[in-house]
Nucleic acid binder design. Structure first.
Length: 445
RNA sequence: GCGAUCGUAGCUCAGUCGGCUAGAGCACCUGGUUGUGGUCCAGGGGGUCGCGGGUUCGAAUCCCGUCGGUCGCCCCA
């Protein structure tokens, strides 16, 4: 009803970002961006909606129920808000594949949308950092992508004790399943079953395994496979033996291990063959990053997808990458790092207050001068002339310096107070901005 | 799409076997007339008790529906 007193709410599963939440979001995004660039990735962005076909090509018609899809009023072309970035990435890469360098290293920090019911760690709108290394089939590329992921965790102050990078490999699992007697037609369904294993009961697992058509002996071996974990520093051959695969199949694991060792990442990583990723398009290394206690959903997930660019009309091109969403990451950061990362509102360099009725617009002139010198300057809007309250106002917003326009001061000068040392001195207005600037650089602020 | 649970001020909550004009703390604003950092004192703004319907003399309170939040299922990019 178009009631004039109607109260509007944000749509289900979306978030409003007030200044504190926005500061936290920017903290996450700027960390993603900085680490991506340091690791040699270039930022890209695409449209927030695409032709619906782009998403059904890869995932089939079944995906539609989980998308926000629509047509233009009066139009008949179906569109969808993007539920993931990979199709856009593949489309962008495919249309310029011939002129792009090898490898092409791209990242993006787009918003994504999905129509399902929200739950812990999964909302209808979220921001997801995407890293992709395209055109390089080597284990080094896998490791570089992992290095970037772990680089971000480290930058957030998380350690190898806080987080676990669980590594697996589609080829190795496929071999193990074949040796266990799983027929090719049942392979993808078996992957999906393993992917869901952790949240299923023993009986449910058995039951669904039977439904797929797996034999009892195969089910036992799959369970053993999914329980197999080992430190990433362990010899892959030993692990392969445990899951019934010949040691010669372990070459990809050995290469990956060697690269991870060189990048100094082994501490973070664990071989874990319960990780398969449900998606059909992964072809090699796959991984997920979890909080160490396992109490949250995956913070990040990805792997190698050597057939995907081709599927979207590009030349056959190997690629690997991952996504990291802001929702689960935010939960983990708040839980493990406390307020130091949450409170990241920028405090002003200078805060201007005035202890009398200012009829000469001096506060405005001072602000203009500070802004002109690219200082972060704010003022008090309180009407009180009580300096104690005005200083409290400056303190509350985290000001580094306070500029006091005082009737006690001679014409053309103000009091500059250092809010950390509490020292203050009289200073000419002409020299104010330069003085603040030089003191900020002297203290490294 | 399905299930459980919750919904009183910006936030955290009290009030509810149906009964005065719906409260507190925090936050916000103002004053405490020369005062230098979240203190203290006083005052103020802010709620159609999520919304709609029903029962009743009377509903924040009981019933139904709906919209949202949370948690889970399905699915997971």
């Amino acid at each position: 009803m178009a009631d004039s007193t109607r109260r509007f709410q944000a749509p289900k599963g979306t978030r409003d970002f007030y200044p504190e939440e926005m500061a936290f979001r920017r903290h996450i995004e700027s960390t993603w961006r900085a680490v991506s660039i340091e690791h040699g990735f270039d930022e890209i962005e695409g449209p927030a909606f695409e032709h619906l076909d782009l998403y059904t090509v890869k995932s089939g018609e079944g995906i539609i129920s989980e998308l926000f899809s629509f047509t233009r009023a009066g139009g008949d072309v179906p569109y969808a808000l993007r539920p993931e970035f990979t199709p856009t990435l593949a489309r962008m890469y495919a249309s310029r594949a011939n002129s792009l360098p090898v490898p092409t290293k791209w990242f993006a920090i787009p918003t994504h949308f999905r129509a399902e019911r929200p739950q812990r760690g999964r909302l209808r709108e979220h921001v997801q950092w995407n890293i992709d290394m395209i055109g390089d089939p080597s284990a080094n590329a896998d490791a570089e992508v992992l290095a970037t992921c772990i680089g971000v965790l480290d930058r957030f102050g998380l350690s190898a004790r806080d987080m676990r990078v669980r590594l697996s490999h589609r080829d190795v699992i496929t071999l193990a399943l074949q040796n266990a007697g799983v027929q090719q037609p049942a392979m993808q369904a078996t992957f999906e079953l393993i992917d869901r294993r952790e949240k299923m009961g023993q009986e449910a697992f058995q039951e669904q395994a039977m439904t797929i058509g797996l034999e009892a002996s195969a089910i036992d071996r799959i369970e053993a496979l999914a329980r197999t974990t080992a430190d990433a520093s362990e010899d892959p051959c030993t692990i392969l033996e445990a899951i019934g695969v010949g040691a010669d199949a372990g070459e990809p694991l050995r290469q990956l291990q060697a690269c991870l060792e060189a990048y100094g990442l082994l501490d973070w990583c664990t071989w874990d063959f319960s990780i398969v990723r449900g998606l059909a398009y992964y072809t090699g290394m796959v991984f997920e990053v979890h909080e160490a206690t396992g109490s949250e959903r995956a913070v990040a997930g990805g792997g190698r997808y050597d057939n995907l660019i081709e599927l979207f009309g590009g030349p056959p091109t190997p690629a690997c990458g991952f996504g990291m969403g802001d929702v689960v990451l935010g939960l983990v950061l708040k839980d493990r790092c406390g307020d130091s990362q949450v409170d990241s509102m920028p405090g002003p360099d200078a805060f201007v207050i005035c202890d009398h009725d200012d009829e000469s617009m001096l506060v405005q002139r001072i602000l203009a001068s500070l802004w002109k010198h690219r200082l972060h300057a704010r003022r008090s809007y309180k009407s009180t002339r009580n300096v104690g309250k005005l200083l409290a106002d400056a303190d509350r917003c985290g000001a580094r310096f306070t500029v006091l326009v005082s009737s006690d001061e001679p014409e053309g000068s103000v009091v500059l107070r250092d809010m950390q040392s509490k020292n203050q001195e009289s200073i000419s207005i002409d020299q104010l901005a330069g003085c603040i600037r030089s003191r900020l650089s002297a203290t490294g602020d």
